[in-house]
Each structure stands twice: as structure tokens, then as C-alpha cells.
Design a protein around this nucleic acid. Structure first.
Length: 753
RNA sequence: GGACGGUUAGCUCAAUUGGCAGAGCAUCUCGCUUACAUCGAGAAGGUCGCAGGUUCGAGUCCUGCACCGUCCACCA
């Protein structure tokens, strides 16, 4: 029998609570999350390839949810893997101010706690409150990131609204403006009457509801019946559009009618437009340019007048008595009543209708023509860089083309590939991006206006608009009161975090970033915008690869949310089962782009796995001799592995290669599964069990060979498992005797070959 | 209207280039044996959504269908 005193002081069961905090602070103190320290301490070399990533900045609206935990785990696995591979590895942390989301959260709190709105406080005081809220959220979030074990370089932490990023935003705005890609103009926008602001197409959700399609004549004797779900907007009709091929109405095209519609005089021109579907409704469309994007397009094509009926509060404006001041819905009811009374209503039919709601406030979107700032995605401009192969310097291109070609030409790959199709499809349907918001929290638009003086009224706009970080020195300039869409600043994230617009070393060393890992739900919001911004402002791609993970759902497959009460809190779970178990359970069975169904039993299983690793390690520790010289025989390379052990180790080497390949190819779920399976069902169940005989009863060489095989395989499995289960593996690493040349921290240990 | 994904054991999901259908949880039986009862040994449980086709061989490739889900879309 060998003496086995080594494991006496180790608990029989692994208790993550006693380990995780201590280990994280050890890592932080070591400085190895920072590639500069790794370089200094020669853990990597200046000539090593880099691996860089940004953390998709969590919104400062509250706390991290389990979806974040999946993203963080995915990213941390990649980061730890490449760090161990010897790359110059940088993962940058940060948070997002999330303009509308944060502002509406604080507004709701204000309403609830003090029965006040933001105007009661005023812009300055209100912003103070929001910033205070954001700061609290930020520190909660940072704590949670650490709890998850994220090996982020905290020395480079960024915030979308901090000084550096503010400068980046203003610079970006000016540059895009100078390129002619940002313009101010009147267009139909998505107006949120509840939030009193515009929102972009992507911030609108469509819900299917039942609506009523009313078919009627404007007045008695009018030849063309029209159909609409919103009779109240018809007060603003300026035309009827019919399909030019429609025999029924051909003869009316070009004619003008004066009608009296429920007491309001209208001048209706009949136009032919091929956007009109002859088989829907009556085949004739009452054109309301101010309140429908489709009609706006028709009006543009036929030079029709725009008459606004509904105001910013969703009420009929002052021009339409007796309906003025009434809510759209009430006005609708009254108008329909009147049409009925006058015998003008032909039909009422129930139809399925999709209703647009603002994502954040739930307000029903009112399409309104408004003067706003836009990014023009179709405008041709000459590309100012010679850094991308698919567009030459000086060549005419558009933002849409840049976004599309970056992926099409293989500069950026999307994993899984099927999302590339979705991406292209989205770009094809893209309209100009409305970037101005009538909210207070965010980047104030870096534009200043001056009232035109009568004597200088020469239509020279440049005299009265100034685009830049600060106003010109002369008097009378007022900054635009609006703020920018939050995704404007997020779009700059890969390079604004590295110091742009300054020419920093970080930019040179770590951009383009290697991978962007994020949920597929923000492919359009964020990923596409980043590609847009980076190609245009830097002549670079933001990342070489986009890894899209799924959404975390509950056991029933429902999206987790606070309101449904099925949300799992990652910090609670980590506390209960250990972070490593939580991480493992999130990764296992989650193929790229696939949703993950989570349940506590899954996490529990991984807690058991952690315990298994702990105990197998205790066993290996128990067979290691205490005597230094004896121990060296096992830890050093000089002891040969005999037949069976040698074969077992060879097999293990295959496992190592497979796992490495899986991680390199983003098959993290497969790597995790293999690690689990090999450790439990090969290493513990078979190899350890079979070694027991050699160790207890074998000859000296057999004993040494078996012990060395166990020791080697354990050590190397700890390395393989480290990216997935960093705390447990680091803890065991600290306890096990090391081979010559090993690192103090598993964190920076070389990845097995 | 367009596109995408899913359908495999009671539940949650795997099966990387086509090669004997696998895990975890739950269930049943037995076992506290000197790493681990957060464990071990064993059992039961599957016409891989349906219908065709390609192939020596199909859960995997092709065609069609069904159901569930998701995203996109200016048919009022």
C-alpha cells in the first residue's frame, strides 16, 4: 500500500461557494486578463497572433438575465481558450446607456414613486436621476460579470456615454454628415405617442389583431368606393390611387373631385399607381400621405399634397372640427356612425390586421411626417479608403452595398451560416435609418442652429447649421434638442472601445476584432449597424466572424421574462449550484443559433459533474506519493507509459485534438459534451477503475506508469475544462503538484497539443 | 405574403464528412465496496413527424406533406 495522506484535508464534496470569489480576485490581482501584462510577463509574445473581442455591452437598465449568462459564458470560453493557446488576448468590458430603454425605466419609477414626469423635473435634473440610476445598474452588472467568471480586461472598461465614446460619436456623426450620408428631412417616421419620440423600424413590434375594414363612399354620388381600417385618417386624403391597368377606374385617372367627407371638404385627385392591388378592398385606395408610409410613397410619386390629421398625442388636430381634440379611435367611431346615417357605408368586415407597437413603451405607433435626422442607406458616395478588396478607393458605393458585400465577399463570416441569408434579406428591405430621438438621455445630436437674420437670408444653409462637437464661437447658436438612437453609438463599439478617433496602439493591435459573439435577436439592431459604421468610418470590418447564439427559454420553450415570472436569475443559480455548473449547463446542448431550454435540473446535473471532477482529482492526489523524489518520477517525463497506459494516453490525445478543433470551429456544445463524457465515462469509470489494480497490486513500473497516466490525463483535462469550468479547475490546479515548467495559474497555462 | 428553424426515450436535448440510435433528468431493482450516495451496478423505455426517392447502407442527402415555433414585409 502506498501512503496517501494528500487528500485528507480536502472536503469530500466540492463547495463552489468557498472557492469562486477567492479565485476571481486572485485572477484579477494577477493582471493576466490584460494582454499587456501577459506580454510583460512573457506569457505571450508581440509576434503572436491576437484574439480580441468586445463584450456586447449590457444595457444599464437593470440586472443581467440568463441570456446574458449564455453570451458571457460563450465569450469567456473563447477568450480563455485563445489565451491558453498563447494568443495576445483581449476581451473588453463595457455597458450601454440604452437611451430609450433606460429613460423609460426611470420615467416609470419617477411616476410611481413621486407622481412626476420628466418635464416636472426639467432636462438637467432628470438627466441627473437617469445617470444615478445608470451608475447603480452599472456596478450591479460589473459584479455579475465577475460572478460569472468573465476574464475581461477591466482596465479597458468602457461606457457608451463616457467622455471617450462621446467624442467618438460626435466625430462619427460629423464624418457621416460630411460624406453626405446623414441628412435632415421630412419623412414618415414611426411616432410613439406614449414615449413622445420617434423610433426606428427595428424598435417596432407588429402584433396581429382583428380589425375592421370599412368600405364606403366619401359622399353621395361619388363614383369610387374606398376601403380602410382607419376612416378617421381619411380626413387627410388628397387622392385616390388605382391600379393603372384596372378597367373599372381607368377612366377616372387624372380627374379631380371636390367632395364633402363627413362635413370636411376634400379635393381628391385620381392617380394611377402600380402599388395598388386591384383585388384588395375595392381596388381603389384613398391616399392619406401623412399617415401611411405606402401613401406617402404614392404622394411623392404623384406630387400630392400632404395634410396631417392626427397630432403627436394621437388626437385629431385643430383643423378638423368637430373631431378636433378627439382621440383617433373616438373620431373613427363618430365618422363611421355618420357614414352609416348618410347611407354611405357599404360594408364592414372583420380582417386580420397587424398593429405596430413601440417595443419599449407599448405605445401604438402613429406614422407621422416629421423633420428628423436620417442615415441614407441608398445614397452613392465615393469610398474614401483603399483597405477593403471589394470596394476600391474613390469607387461609388452605398451603405447597403458595404453592409452586404462585407459578408458576401467573405470578409465577415456568420456562424451559423444560414443567418447570412436572413441578413441579406434584411438589408434588401432596409429604409433610411431615423437616428434622432425626442428623448433626453443619450448623445445629444452634435448639430447647432442659428436663426437666419433677414439680411443674410440667402438660402445658404451652411451659415445656419453647424455640425460638430461644439458650436462656433460666434453668438446665437443653439444645439439640437434631440438625442441619437442608442444603436448609433453601439455601432461604433468595436473601435470606440479601442480609442477611436485617436490613433491608439490598441486600435492598431486589436482591430478588427476576431469574433463577435451575440444573440441572433440583435443581428439587425447591432451587427448590421456595426458593419455599416466600421466600413464607412474606418474602412475596416468590425470583426472577422459573428457567432450567433440562441435565446434562453424556459422548460416550456417560452421566452424568459420578468412579467411571465419564469425568468431565472443567473446569480442566484450560480450561488446555488456554482458558476461552473451554470456555465456548463448553458453551453451543453446549445448549438449555434439554436435556442436553449433551461431548467434547474440541467444545472444540477452539472453540479454533480463538478463534484465528480473534484473527487476524481482527490483520488489521483491520493495515489501521488508524498516523498518528493518518488513524486518526481510521476510528474516528470522520464517515466515511460507501459502498453495499456500508453494506449490509453494515445486515445486521450485524440480527444484533445477533437476538443480543440470543436472549440476552434465554434462547436462549443460538442466540446463540452465530449469533455463531460470522456471525464466521467472514460477517465473515471474505466481508466481510474482499471488503474486501481496496477496501483495497488502491480510491480513498481506498472504502478508508476498507471499513476503517471492518471496524473497526466487529469492535468490535461483540467486544462481542457478550464475555459468551461474555470473556478473548479483553477482550484484543483492549485492543489495538485505540478510538472516542471508549469504556470502558477491554470488561466495562462499552455493549451495541450 | 416571403424566409428560416424544429419535429429522435415520459421530459430536455445530442449524434461534427451518410456507417451498430446516445446523454442528463424522471422511473424500477440492488448496493454506503478503501475518490465520489452530488455515487456505483443493473433494468425498462425509440416504426428518429408522415409519404416517397437516392444509396451496399439514411436520424443524417433529395422531393412532397403535416404540425409547432421564429424572423422579415408600406395590401389600404
Amino acid at each position: 500500500m502506498i501512503k496517501c495522506g494528500n487528500m485528507k484535508n480536502l472536503a469530500k464534496n466540492y463547495d463552489p461557494r468557498k472557492v469562486e470569489k477567492r479565485i476571481y480576485s486572485k485572477w484579477e490581482k494577477s493582471g493576466f486578463f490584460n494582454p499587456d501584462v501577459c506580454l510583460e510577463r512573457k506569457k505571450t509574445t508581440p509576434r503572436a497572433p491576437y484574439f480580441s473581442m468586445v463584450l456586447p455591452p449590457p444595457n444599464v437598465t437593470g440586472v443581467l438575465h440568463i441570456g446574458h449568462a449564455l453570451g458571457i459564458t460563450t465569450e469567456d470560453i473563447l477568450t480563455r481558450f485563445y489565451r491558453m493557446k498563447g494568443r495576445r488576448t483581449l476581451w473588453i468590458p463595457g455597458t450601454d446607456h440604452a437611451a430609450i430603454a433606460t429613460q423609460s425605466k426611470v420615467e416609470a419609477l419617477l411616476e410611481k414613486q413621486e407622481k412626476k414626469n420628466r418635464h416636472d423635473l426639467g432636462r438637467r435634473e432628470f438627466l441627473k436621476r437617469v445617470n444615478r440610476f445608470a451608475a447603480e445598474s452599472r456596478s450591479t452588472i460589473l459584479g455579475q460579470l465577475k460572478k460569472m467568471g468573465a476574464s475581461l480586461d477591466w482596465s479597458r472598461e468602457a461606457y457608451t456615454l463616457d467622455k471617450e465614446r462621446n467624442k467618438a460619436v460626435a466625430t462619427a456623426f460629423k464624418k457621416l454628415y460630411d460624406l453626405g450620408l446623414i441628412y435632415r428631412g421630412v419623412r414618415i417616421v414611426n411616432w410613439d405617442p406614449k414615449g413622445q419620440t420617434t423610433v426606428s423600424d427595428d424598435e417596432v413590434n407588429h402584433e396581429e389583431t382583428e380589425g375592421v375594414l370599412y368600405t364606403f363612399y366619401y359622399e353621395k354620388g361619388f363614383p369610387i368606393p374606398i376601403a380602410t381600417t382607419r376612416p378617421e385618417t381619411k380626413l387627410g386624403d388628397t387622392a385616390i390611387a388605382v391600379n393603372p391597368k384596372d378597367g373599372r377606374y381607368k377612366k377616372y385617372i387624372g380627374k379631380k373631385f371636390s367632395v364633402n367627407f363627413v362635413g370636411t371638404p376634400l379635393i381628391i385627385k385620381v392617380v394611377g399607381d402600380k402599388a395598388v392591388n386591384p383585388s384588395f378592398g375595392t381596388g381603389a385606395l384613398g391616399v392619406t400621405p401623412a399617415h401611411s408610409l405606402a401613401d406617402w410613397g404614392i404622394a411623392k410619386r404623384h406630387n400630392l399634397e400632404t395634410k396631417q390629421v392626427i397630432n403627436e398625442y394621437g388626437k385629431i388636430n385643430e383643423n378638423y372640427p368637430p373631431f378636433s381634440g378627439k382621440k383617433a379611435k373616438e373620431a373613427r367611431k363618430e365618422i363611421v356612425e355618420r357614414l352609416k346615417k348618410e347611407n354611405l357605408l357599404l360594408r364592414e368586415e372583420k380582417i386580420k390586421q397587424s398593429i405596430a407597437k413601440a417595443e419599449r413603451t407599448g405605445g401604438i405607433i402613429e406614422p407621422l411626417p416629421k423633420l428628423q435626422w436620417f442615415i441614407d442607406v441608398d445614397k452613392e458616395f465615393s469610398f474614401p479608403y483603399s483597405t477593403l478588396s471589394f470596394v476600391k478607393k474613390g469607387e461609388k458605393t452605398t451603405l447597403k452595398k458595404l453592409m452586404s458585400l462585407s459578408v458576401k465577399k467573405g470578409w465577415i463570416s456568420i456562424v451559423p451560416k444560414r443567418f447570412e441569408k436572413t441578413y441579406f434579406h434584411w438589408i434588401e428591405n432596409l429604409h433610411d435609418w431615423c437616428i434622432s430621438r425626442q428623448i433626453w438621455f443619450g448623445h445629444r445630436i452634435p448639430v447647432y442652429y442659428r436663426k437666419q437674420k433677414p439680411q443674410t437670408e440667402d438660402h445658404n444653409q451652411a451659415d445656419n447649421i453647424h455640425v460638430g462637437e461644439s458650436p462656433p464661437e460666434k453668438e446665437g447658436w443653439k444645439q439640437d434638442p434631440d438625442t441619437l438612437d442608442t444603436w448609433f453609438s453601439s455601432g461604433l463599439w468595436t473601435f470606440s472601445t479601442l480609442g477611436w478617433p485617436e490613433k491608439t496602439k490598441d486600435l492598431k493591435n486589436y482591430h478588427p476584432t476576431t469574433v463577435l459573439a451575440t444573440g441572433y435577436d440583435i443581428l439587425f439592431f447591432w451587427v448590421a449597424r456595426m458593419i455599416l459604421m466600421t466600413t464607412t468610418l474606418k474602412g475596416e470590418i468590425p470583426f472577422h466572424c459573428v457567432y450567433l447564439h440562441g435565446i434562453v427559454r424556459d422548460e416550456k420553450g417560452q421566452k424568459m421574462s420578468k412579467s411571465l415570472g419564469n425568468a431565472l436569475d443567473p446569480v442566484n443559480l450560480a450561488e446555488k449550484y456554482g458558476t461552473d455548473a451554470l456555465r456548463m449547463s448553458l453551453i451543453m446542448g446549445s448549438a449555434p443559433g439554436n435556442d436553449v431550454k433551461m431548467s434547474e435540473s440541467k444545472i444540477k446535473a452539472q453540479k454533480h459533474f463538478a463534484n465528480k471532477i473534484w473527487n476524481a482529482s482527490r483520488f489521483v492526489l491520493s495515489i501521488l506519493p508524498e516523498n518528493k523524489k518518488e513524486l518526481e518520477k510521476i510528474t516528470s517525463k522520464n517515466t515511460p507509459l507501459l502498453g495499456k497506459d500508453s494506449l490509453s494516453y494515445k486515445n486521450f490525445s485524440k480527444h484533445v485534438k477533437e476538443v480543440s478543433k470543436d472549440i476552434e470551429n465554434f462547436r462549443l456544445y460538442l466540446a463540452a459534451e465530449k469533455l463531460y463524457h470522456y471525464f466521467w465515462h472514460t477517465f473515471a469509470d474505466v481508466i481510474i477503475e482499471e488503474s486501481k489494480q496496477s496501483i495497488h497490486e502491480g510491480r513498481e513500473e506498472e504502478r508508476l506508469s498507471a499513476s503517471r497516466n492518471l496524473y497526466l490525463q487529469l492535468i490535461e483535462q483540467l486544462k481542457l475544462l478550464h475555459p468551461f469550468m474555470p473556478f473548479l479547475t483553477e482550484e484543483i490546479w492549485a492543489i495538485l503538484p505540478k510538472s516542471p515548467g508549469s504556470e502558477e495559474f491554470l488561466l495562462i497555462e499552455k493549451w495541450p497539443q
